[in-house]
Amino acid sequence: MGASLVRTEQLTAMNEGFRNVWTISKRELGGYFNSPVAYVFIVIFLLLTGFFTFSLGFYHERGQASLAEPFFSWHPWLYLFLVPSVGMRLWAEERRSGTLELLLTMPIAPWQAIVGKFLASWLFLAIALALTFPVVLTTAYLGDPDNGAIISGYVGSLLLAGAYLGVTELMSAITRNQIIAFIISVVVCFLLLLCGWEPVTQFLVNHVPEGLVSLVKGMSTWHHFGTFQKGLIDLRDVVYFGSVIGFSLFTTSVVLRGVRGA
């Protein structure tokens, strides 16, 4: 009886936690769709993915029913600008308008607000990503693609967006200026991407010890996203993206504590 008592109480607390996260998420999502920004973003995202896939990706010239090269390989570069533009307002706007004071005096734990905001933006990006489905349909119509590779590509793409978003949320907490948050996020995400990009690793191989090269490469979103593109969902890569997200969100909570202290 005693054990079940404790369990029920924990469940109630957990439910309340999830409810708070959802309340925050709902408001954020509403914030996106109440303004034209969301629709503009989605249109730009779809136009760009279409353009990259069908023009720059040499989709037709390849003569292969595969999305890895022409479609997914552009995502790290596209997200570099699009994800920070989605996430830059998350905390910067709260700080600028003073609503941070309102939010953090509500009876919720700060992590619930941090996770809620993250999930809302992530869901928004997921919606945008899901709307690229015509590309998949086209490929399926033209040939016989490897569905597993497409699924793993989408999973990887979503995780990649999540990692960039985590970084952006952190940068957004650092400043009250959205533009600054955007710029720093782009730079940090670019560095994360660059340190595994082949020209850079090639350069590193000639100058630093091999152990260091693989360490740097292991830190890169490029490297880990590559596996998904090949059609593999490797636990190590999932853990990598998960830890980037986890680390970013945790650091966000530390930054927010600092913001309130000063």
Binding site: G30, G31, S35, S97, T99, E101, L102
Partner: peptide
């Protein structure tokens, strides 16, 4: 709060 903030959107 002092500035009576609310979500403007």
């Amino acid at each position: 709060p002092e500035s009576a903030p609310s979500y403007s959107d």
